[in-house]
Nucleic acid binder design. Structure first.
Length: 469
RNA sequence: GGUAAUAUAGCCAAGUGGUAAGGCAACGGUCUGCAAAACCGUCAUCGCCGGUUCGACUCCGGUUAUUACCUCCA
């Protein structure tokens, strides 16, 4: 039984899918006005791992996410660059794919842009007005936060406090338009002819920030969904407002389990676009040749914990991942000469650690304990690979176990690097012959030659093995 | 000010009322023509003070520090 920490209750709860065997989940995507930074990637990877584990556990997951492609920042960026808004949005939506594919983030089942659902948004807002939860004011449409019972409970914020804070921040114009400072916009009137807008019953305008997610979740999933995810900073106001809008419209519980990922910090400070202390994934990929190491770091930290991104963290992640890859290879190179059959005690140990892995992940996706189980398998693999004789079934079981569990973290390619050019293969064969007659001069020369080609050769009691540098 | 989170070895990081998983790094050893990899071993008393208890790192009270949210933010 999977247990998840629900931000709403602040407790770990047993996870029950609305429809047995199926999970509907919605995860907030980025605003496409710049390249995504590590923090965005962390969120995407955190929920990618959750999705993969749910799938590993047998669920069919319907994963919906969005691109916010119309908002103040995009409009501003477009003006700065002298292009229209959709040029900006198109560019960075495409960049999102270019950055997330190397990180092996599975594409959403459905990923929609806000601007692709404008008619649905207008219908949603009309319904809110009709039900008395929203009102038009000078072309804007605001949601009556206080009319919605339990407003703010997700973020556990006190309504009076929020109201006082809101009043202090808003400018006079906004205060005049709102019935209450705490009300939030579901539709914004267009104030300039050169900014993107759509015709609506309230004049030309564009959607408010929160409305798109409510609309998409309902349109592509259901009135009530199993899991809604996003960064912890979205609990308020974004998700708080989503709940208010959605439940005001449907009268149903919007989300059963609210999951929020922790931040990536830089030097123990939050990384964010507004602070300007962010590193884009685009830059990282350009300067770091192994995207799986980045993935490893982000995927193996428990999703609610902060990750402190410092110079050493990637290096440590690289070392850990290399240990796992090495163990996989060590067994892999014995498979071709393995005897048929299996070894009971090793098979038993493998099953036990797979079981531990599942127990860890069932407990609110405790990736640290899960990775510890993989390291137990690593030690077993290294020991087994050094035996004089190994059995095919067990060796295969070992490599598959490691690969399958790593795949839950979205780290694959453990065996994909184990292919060679004909030229390199010829050198390796030649070296085997040289070693057979103890011609170490030639053997070492060939090893250097292979090394120059990026292939590291190692000699073991059981023969020669190699890997790419 | 309000609401939360975190504080475990050089570093990352689990965990629990009964004498602290795992990993990285380091050190010692084994194996080895060399190299590499691997294996074996060594390496903490859990921010601070007080309380409850036969016994607390784990519960309670207090305290300190750091961080985050309180309508730009994953």
């Amino acid at each position: 039984m999977i247990h998840v920490y629900n931000t709403l209750s602040r407790e770990k709860e047993a996870f029950h899918a609305i429809t047995p065997g199926k999970v509907n989940m919605y995860v907030c995507g980025p605003t496409v006005y710049n390249y995504i930074h590590i923090g965005n990637a962390r969120s995407a990877i955190a929920f990618d791992v959750i999705r993969r584990y749910l799938e590993y556990s047998g669920y069919v997951v319907n994963y919906v996410s969005n691109f916010t492609d119309v908002d103040d920042k995009i409009i501003q960026r477009a003006r700065e660059e002298g292009v229209d808004e959709m040029t900006i949005a198109d560019k960075y939506a495409q960049a999102f794919d270019e950055d997330t594919i190397p990180l092996n983030i599975k594409p959403a089942t459905t990923r929609s842009r806000a601007t692709a659902v404008i008619p649905d948004i207008i219908a949603f807002v009309e319904d809110l007005i009709h039900k008395g939860y929203a009102y038009e004011s000078a072309g804007d449409v605001y949601f009556r936060a206080k009319k919605f019972k339990g407003y703010g409970i997700l973020a556990h914020q006190d309504l009076a406090e929020m109201e006082a804070n809101a009043a202090g921040r808003l400018d006079d114009q906004e205060l005049t338009r709102k019935e209450d400072p705490i009300d939030f916009a579901v539709w914004k009137a267009s104030h300039s002819s050169d900014e993107i807008s759509w015709v609506s019953p309230w004049g030309k305008g564009r959607p408010g920030w929160h409305i798109e997610c409510s609309v998409m979740a309902q349109k592509y999933l259901a009135d009530t969904i199993d899991i809604h995810g996003g960064g912890i900073d979205l609990a308020f106001p974004h998700h708080t407002n989503e709940i208010a809008q959605s439940e005001a419209r449907t009268g149903q519980t919007f989300v059963n389990y609210w999951l929020h990922n922790g931040f990536v910090n830089v030097n123990d400070e939050k990384m964010s676009k507004s602070l300007g202390n962010f590193t884009t994934v685009h830059d990282m990929l350009a300067h770091y040749d192994d995207p799986m190491v980045i993935r490893y770091l982000l995927a193996t930290t428990q999703y609610r914990r902060p990750i402190n991104y410092a110079p050493d963290t990637l290096e440590q992640a690289r070392a850990e991942l290399e240990r796992i890859r090495t163990a996989y290879r060590n067994v892999f190179f014995r498979i071709s000469t393995a005897k048929t059959g299996h070894d009971d005690s090793v098979d038993y140990a493998i099953a036990e650690h797979i079981s531990h892995f599942r127990e860890a992940m069932d407990d609110d996706f405790n990736t640290q304990n899960a990775i510890a189980s993989i390291f137990e398998l690593v030690t077993i693999a290294n020991n087994y690979a050094s035996r004089d004789e190994i059995k095919l079934d067990t060796a295969t079981r070992l490599t598959h176990a490691i690969a399958d569990l790593m795949n839950v973290f979205g780290i694959n390619g453990l065996s994909e690097h184990l292919t060679l050019s004909a030229e390199a293969q010829a050198l390796l064969d030649k070296r085997v012959q040289a070693r057979a007659v103890r011609d170490f001069n030639l053997s070492d020369q060939l090893r250097d030659q292979l090394s120059d080609m990026g292939i590291i050769v190692e000699d073991t009691t059981q023969g020669q093995r190699w890997h790419h540098a």
